[in-house]
């Protein structure tokens, strides 16, 4: 038996909106630790890892580890029917073939339940080792989204370079080139407006903008995004999910031939 009650149901809505275009079907894993997902996009270039820790739920009951295969587009359709202020409860029976999403309005005057069919999905979990990164950039998520969107109108790939000068996002295309440099800026009124660059060594990597733009669909989840870079490793683009967890996107770099 599984019963997870999330008072801030809008978080789950936002999570689904941020992954549904990247991944079609995925297994949600439920354990004492929390509600999690690890899945790759269909071309195996990007990987998404989500964790919502059990402590973040108002009520968290998971009698035994459960893996629930879901079509993320269908799940997103159902969660779209929840109000932004609704409390969302996820319920499933052990060995059952459905999951129920219950939506309660804050005043308890409207209660809806949506039952969705589960699916069998063959998926293997990849081991993601703890890595030391050459550079970690923390910046406003809206700024990062704006940069990815702007650059994708010029080119298909972005070169992200971190040096002492700051972080540079560059692209080139048929019509020309573009370079956007963001410097460290911690003298801001609000901490969410800060740009912080921790660099061990300069690093420069090339990525497909199509994926980066897809990751920025998670922007509504968090004011800040963390971009962790190391040569010869996928970039990690991380958005915190309130106080309860994170959504991390891993993207394999392009290789100069």
């Amino acid at each position: 038996m599984l019963e997870l009650r999330l008072v801030q149901g809008s978080l789950l809505k936002k999570v689904l909106e941020s992954v549904k275009d990247l991944v079609n079907d995925a297994n949600f894993d439920c354990s004492a630790t929390g509600f999690s997902l690890q899945a790759m996009d269909s071309s195996h270039v990007a990987l998404v890892a989500l964790l919502l820790r059990s402590e973040g739920f108002e009520h968290y009951r998971c009698d035994r580890n459960l893996s629930m295969g879901m079509n993320l587009n269908n799940m997103a359709k159902m969660l779209k029917c929840a109000g932004n202020d609704d409390i969302v409860t996820i319920k499933a029976d052990d060995g059952g073939d459905t999951v129920t999403f219950m939506f309660e309005s804050p005043t308890q005057d409207k209660i809806a339940d949506f039952e969705m069919k589960l699916m069998d999905i063959d998926s293997e979990h990849l081991g993601i080792p703890e890595a030391e990164f050459q550079a970690i950039v923390r910046m406003p998520s809206a700024e990062f989204a704006r940069i990815c969107k702007d650059l994708s109108s010029i080119g298909d790939t972005v070169v992200i370079s971190v040096t002492k000068e700051g972080v540079k996002f560059s692209t080139r295309g048929d019509i020309g080139t573009a370079n956007i440099v963001c410097r460290q800026n911690t003298t801001v009124d609000k901490p969410e407006d800060a740009t912080v660059i921790e660099m061990q060594e300069p690093v420069s990597l090339t990525f497909a903008l199509r994926y980066m733009n897809s990751f920025t669909k998670a922007t509504p989840l968090s004011n800040q995004v963390t971009i962790s870079l190391s040569s010869e490793l996928p970039v990690v683009v991380e958005y915190k999910v309130a106080e309860m967890g994170y959504i991390r996107f891993y993207l394999a770099p392009k290789l100069e031939e």
């Binding site: 990987l47 990849l126 080792p129 490793l233 996928p234 770099p253 392009k254």
Partner: peptide, 14 residues
């Protein structure tokens, strides 16, 4: 010319 790498090049199955 650039070649897109895949995730499995970096992370092995558990």
């Amino acid at each position: 010319k650039q070649k897109q790498q895949v995730i499995s090049r970096f992370f092995a199955p558990k």
